[in-house]
Design a protein around this nucleic acid. Structure first.
Lengths: 196, 196
DNA sequence: GATTTTATGTCAACATCGCTGACCAAATCG
DNA sequence: CGATTTGGTCAGCGATGTTGACATAAAATC
């Protein structure tokens, strides 16, 4: 188990605050009862449930709008990331989405043909097709954005500001190295003012 | 309070995002001093990114194991929820997953045929097929569970106990009414298995 | 200048996992 | 008994991911 990455000082506190049920932590396999890193069964089961239900319902509103236009979630992702980084290259978009060129093409080509996204040759490298949202694309992305904004706003309001910060920290932790790097680049282009 | 947004300047939308708080019970605007009733543009963009990257990477580990067995995420969901509620009926499972009978059948039938899940007639209603994990199913679910446990544990440790609580609150808030009810039932009947 | 590499696009084929519509069988209920 | 409920199944469709092979244009390199 390669879990000795960071300071273990967090764990003592974590065991206390994270433990909702009064049950003691189950013994870790392999002897060494010293393993405070053990994430108890029910804690993970809950995390699995929360992520499944939460993600599904988070996307449901936008999915509904998209379906009426004959589009899917993949189209939304393109609109989202092109909107986030106007002038992004196809290669960069592929890296962010972590899908194949073929899969991207299937949604990107129609989006271009139907006037949601515009392509322009790169100025320094004319092989590149810099992607930008056309007005039609801006409008659709905006609609999808607003739908999700309302939904997330409700959750944020119910949970409170401290919880929101915690949510962000955990979600960031669920990301792999690659995704964290991608996110950093995205935030660089459009920073969120943070207290910390 | 003004943001420093400079891209895709849709001022109409920004004005909307900074609209007046609909509720006075702004939950102690002190502390962090950030009023979450104003869910600004970048805050939601970040939430979208976090959910996309986080959920994708959360599932990546289990997906890899499943792919080697010729299965997909849908199989995992069945194993997960059957494991969570042994003796669950097909109808209840359908309600939780919110998919059609046909979609469920496509993964459930093979799981039964290959000995991961066992069916038994309901005692009070013999039309029902009560679903339970067979030893083979328990083992596979366990493997998937452990993979995700390590991943989530890393995120939890990095974020800290307070953040974990906040994460749970927000994810719960992202769920719709139906999902919240489902989750309540799951937590109620949580199988308290212990120690491997 | 010729060759190679890179960025992008495309065709063909395939798999997963959603969906609808239709229809069937068994068990329960009124 | 007849109607409803529970579950299964067939046929077909659609969105989104995959691999492999190949094409083209521009850039980079020898």
């Amino acid at each position: 188990m390669s879990t000795s990455l960071t300071k273990s000082g967090d764990m003592a506190a974590m065991r206390d605050a994270v433990a909702d049920p009064p049950l003691p932590a189950a013994a870790a396999p392999g002897g060494a009862g010293r393993n405070l890193l053990f994430l108890r069964e029910e804690e993970l089961r809950l995390a699995q449930d929360l992520l499944f239900f939460g993600y599904r319902d988070f996307t449901a509103g936008a999915d509904q709008i998209l379906a009426e236009l004959g589009m899917g979630r993949a189209h939304h992702r393109v609109l989202h990331f092109v909107g986030r980084r106007p002038g992004i290259t196809v290669g960069e978009l592929l890296a962010i989405l972590a899908i194949t060129k073929q899969s991207l093409g299937r949604v990107l080509t129609p989006l271009v043909e139907e006037g949601y996204v515009t392509q322009s040759a790169g100025r320094s490298d004319r092989r590149q097709r810099l992607l930008t949202l056309a007005p039609k694309g801006v409008a659709l992305e905006r609609t999808l954005f607003e739908r999700q904004r309302e939904w997330v706003m409700r959750a944020y309001r119910e949970a409170g500001p401290v919880a929101v910060d915690g949510f962000r920290r955990v979600m960031r932790g669920l990301m792999g190295e690659e995704a964290r790097a991608q996110l950093e680049r995205l935030e660089q282009a459009a920073p969120l003012r943070r207290a910390e």
